[in-house]
């Protein structure tokens, strides 16, 4: 009989405890709004509150704008780099990674210092502030979007497909819209889900731009309503996991397609 290696299993078990005990604790706590009873009351309170609905809707819409803006910025750029400037790829990748080096707090102060005064004075109007928020989020979304688009482009033969389309009479617009984007659908969606999860929970930029976003609302709730805030934590975790699950699902679909290419 084969000996079951004990040590790795102990490590896995400890890791499991480390990650899941707090979660289970949080879940348990969120269900105990009413004394001596398991109840979904806290969840009901959260979901029915107007502030939850307003901030969630707001962040949802901001997330969509962020995804649109990031897609339009990243896809043509990375496509062009792949096609014409492959030697610049490390530099572009480095730029997208700056987000990890520059903390959000520095980013938001930079944004405020530059864009809150004339000639732009973006913070004086709602729409200007929203615009600035989305732009901040776009820079936070860059690493994820870049990575998925880059991987997506690497999976297809960009250059030959482009040339095939060109020889058939296609201009740049047609090539991007009819050939490149459709083949990046899966890559873009997976980038979009990461971005979505990131925007929904984002706190720093939204707070300092004074936007009515979901992240600040969660933080605020945590200070005043302990049961509801843990319920909210569970809800947002579930959302994030749903996003990741969708990505996995899409990724698997894409692999089937690529593997089928001979």
């Amino acid at each position: 009989m084969k000996r079951i290696p004990l040590f790795p299993w102990i490590l896995i078990f400890l890791g499991f405890l480390y990650f899941f005990l707090p979660l289970i604790g949080t879940l348990d706590f969120s269900l105990r709004l009413v004394k001596d009873q398991i109840t979904l009351e806290a969840y009901k309170n959260v979901v029915t509150s107007a502030r939850f609905q307003n901030t969630f809707t707001y962040s949802f819409i901001m997330a969509l704008w962020t995804i649109v803006a990031a897609t339009l910025l990243v896809t043509p750029t990375v496509y062009w780099v792949h096609l014409k400037l492959p030697h610049l790829r490390p530099i572009v990748e480095f730029i997208t990674l700056l987000t990890y080096v520059v903390p959000a707090i520095i980013l938001v102060f930079g944004l405020i210092r530059i864009y809150s005064r004339p000639p732009l004075s973006l913070l004086e109007s709602e729409i200007g502030s929203d615009f600035l928020l989305v732009m901040g989020y776009v820079s936070l979304a860059l690493p994820a979007m870049y990575r998925s688009v880059d991987a997506g482009l690497r999976a297809i033969d960009v250059r030959t497909l482009t040339e095939a389309a060109q020889s058939l009479g296609a201009g740049w617009r047609t090539i991007l819209l009819d050939v490149i984007f459709p083949n990046l659908r899966v890559a873009l969606l997976s980038g979009a889900f990461v971005t979505f999860a990131m925007v929904i929970g984002e706190f720093t930029i939204a707070t300092f731009l004074a936007r009515p976003a979901f992240g600040p609302y969660m933080a605020n709730l945590g200070q005043t309503r302990p049961y509801e805030s843990t319920a909210l934590t569970i809800i947002s975790l579930a959302l994030t996991w749903a996003c990741i699950g969708m990505m996995q699902l899409l990724g698997r679909g894409a692999q089937g397609q690529i593997a089928g290419t001979r």
Partner: peptide, 29 residues
Amino acid sequence: PPQKRNTGMVFQAYALFPNMNVAENIGFG
């Protein structure tokens, strides 16, 4: 530019558009 030359090109790597079926590929031009 190549898109104005009306030349048909066939590549070693086939270069069919993966998102289009055979009829759509052929009808693309």
